[in-house]
Write a protein that binds this DNA or RNA. Structure first.
Length: 571
DNA sequence: GCCGTTTTCGGCCCGACTGTTTTCAGTCG
């Protein structure tokens, strides 16, 4: 069983415990579920490698939960979970996804009205039974009805790249508002997480009423869930929900820290504060009544004895220990890329000409790009054959003469056949500056076969880069089955570069694999996979992902100037 | 159920908003 499925069982156990008023057990299950869900390796592999003891090494997993995991892995289910489901045969995923409906409401609905699904809930509302329950009323019924409506419109996590431009636009309008002293988009967007569930805006102002009215009446706002003096929650026309929190400017840093998260990182900091006899909340760090930090994020980390931790690292994955020991890596900076190694043009499925792509690349500060159009076995993209590649090379030679201080590199995105061979002859590949290899067919090979296929391609001395190494499309297609650790290892051994594809729905490698690559010293690059001049802006998401994977500039080959970059490639 | 820089027992992050409650419970982040 895979991590998300195991995590789900514990999330559900947490809900059941909460229904039974066992809050601390619930918290323990919830924490274990979150750890499992975000764990870098398959829990199954951890267990098979080191048994119960290895499981208990994971924070939040002790004796009882490790034994439950063992039972799940050995038998495929958990007796306790089956019993709870019998006791409360309820569609938890459905009902908990309704805003304003939590475990207590679910329990009451089930026990008093026999509601176990959203459909049941709609029915008792229609029959007028809901508002007659004690603790429920007209308003509550309205709220739930509205939640059901929104649920049906579809919710979920949104691609960072789909949301960030619009959210930043709102952020900058908040910033410019006359009574706003400071404004910031926090939450998972600030951590540059590949997908975000909602948007968290933070504002410093001493006239919160005016800001709150401004925010809740933005043209993008389609519904106001709640509006208070310091906090409100709305739905935006983008489909995503947004929170606004308003604090005084003396609290802004503490609030930034708090609303950037993640939750586990915050809990760890709060615990550090408690150990020192202090209290940390969104208003500041307090010794008794006295605020000892809060104006800036930096001072909070400093007083807690930590180096400043960049938002992208705040996942409680060991960053706090590193910060305490002054050993945080110096993450790659957002403006540090000199080149882009995957660019398509109108020779195949790109929209723009080579010249247009060069102009756009220059505008965002790049010094070189590799033109890597698709190759012949990708029929849908009208991929180039050996002759087409040679012709394009001649064109590139001509165009290169037109641009001062910019270099167009010759490249290709070649396809890896099922047997690990490539669709372009080695003789042609040898002439190119940058050869990227990728999988565009037979996504569903068994793991061992898929892994061998990719390892074979990496061993080809002409292959410089492995493009989008796991093939996933976020929210659309699962990664293909592959032993990514072996692939990373082989890339290091052969000096093949692993791509971090910055396209918003790829972000492939993902953060935890980047960390693996960084740990063992494999080389990385960050590419836009641009199919149009507009796509170079995606590089920012790739850098964000690299930072989430703790990569430094030294780990990323396209931070090098062009000549040094070319000599860094394998020969 | 987890965990240990006061601890192997006795704590467990903390505050805002809403609704139905006249002092608080539930939910959310």
């Amino acid at each position: 069983m895979k991590n998300p499925e195991i995590a789900k069982i514990f999330y559900h156990l947490a809900l059941f415990e909460e229904m039974k008023d066992e809050f601390f057990k619930a918290r323990a299950y919830d924490k274990a579920a979150r750890m499992i869900e975000s764990y870098g390796r398959e829990i199954k592999d951890v267990y098979e490698g080191g048994g119960l003891e290895a499981l208990q090494e994971i924070e939040g997993i002790g004796k009882a939960i490790s034994e439950k995991i063992e039972e799940i892995l050995q038998t495929g289910h958990l007796r306790l979970y089956e019993e709870r489901k019998k006791e409360f045969p309820i569609d938890l995923d459905g009902l908990t996804s309704l805003e304003g409906v939590g475990p207590k409401t679910i329990k009451t609905l089930y026990q008093k009205l026999n509601v176990s699904t959203i459909e049941d809930l709609e029915k008792v509302i229609a029959e007028g039974k809901l508002k007659k329950l004690s603790g429920f009323g007209e308003k509550k019924e309205q709220q739930i009805r509205k939640s059901i409506e929104f649920f049906k419109q579809g919710r979920g996590r949104f691609l960072l790249g789909d949301m960030l431009p619009s959210l930043r636009n709102i952020e900058s309008r908040l910033k410019r508002h006359l009574v706003v002293q400071n404004a910031m988009l926090c939450g998972s967007a600030r951590r540059m997480k590949e997908t975000i569930g909602d948007a968290d805006f933070l504002v410093a102002s001493d006239r919160p009423d005016e800001v709150m009215s401004f925010f809740t009446t933005l043209p993008e706002v389609t519904h106001v869930y709640s509006k208070g003096t310091t906090k409100s929650n709305v739905r935006l026309s983008l489909g995503i929900d947004a929170d606004l929190r308003i604090v005084g400017k003396e609290n802004f840093g503490a609030a930034m820290q708090y609303f950037t998260g993640n939750k586990d990182h915050n809990v760890a900091l709060r615990t550090m504060a408690i150990v020192r006899g202090w209290k940390l909340n969104e208003y500041g760090l307090y010794e008794g009544e006295r605020q000892i930090a809060g104006k800036s994020e930096e001072e909070i980390y400093k007083i807690l004895g930590l180096d400043y931790i960049p938002p992208e690292m705040r996942e409680n994955n060991g960053e706090i220990d590193l910060a305490a020991n002054k050993r945080l890596p110096k993450l790659i900076e957002y403006n540090s890329l000199k080149g882009d190694l995957q660019v398509q043009t109108n020779y195949t499925d790109g929209l723009n000409s080579i010249e247009e792509m060069v102009d756009a690349a220059k505008k965002i500060g790049l010094e070189y790009i590799a033109i890597t159009d698709h190759t012949k076995s990708l029929g849908v993209a009208r991929g180039l054959d050996e002759e087409g590649i040679a012709d394009q090379g001649k064109d590139i030679d001509k165009i290169n003469k037109k641009f001062e201080g910019f270099r167009i590199l010759k490249g290709a995105e070649v396809n890896i056949f099922k047997d690990g061979t490539l669709d372009i002859a080695d003789k042609t590949l040898k002439e190119l500056d940058v050869v990227g290899a990728s999988i565009h067919s037979a996504f569903d090979l068994p793991k061992e076969e898929q892994t061998r296929r990719v390892l074979e391609a990496i061993e080809n001395p002409n292959v410089d880069v492995l493009f989008h190494p796991t093939g996933r499309l976020i929210n659309q297609r699962a990664p293909y089955e592959i032993d990514i650790e072996r692939v990373i290892q082989k890339c290091r051994d052969t000096e093949t570069v692993l791509e971090i594809n910055a396209y918003p729905n790829r972000l492939d490698l993902k953060d935890e694999y980047i960390r693996k690559a960084v740990q063992i010293g494999a080389k990385l690059c960050i590419d836009s996979d641009a199919h149009s001049t507009l796509h170079f802006q995606y590089l920012e998401y790739g850098i964000g992902q690299a930072r989430r994977g703790w990569a430094t500039a030294e780990n990323v080959v396209n931070t090098l100037h062009v000549d040094r970059f070319l000599t860094s490639l394998k020969h």
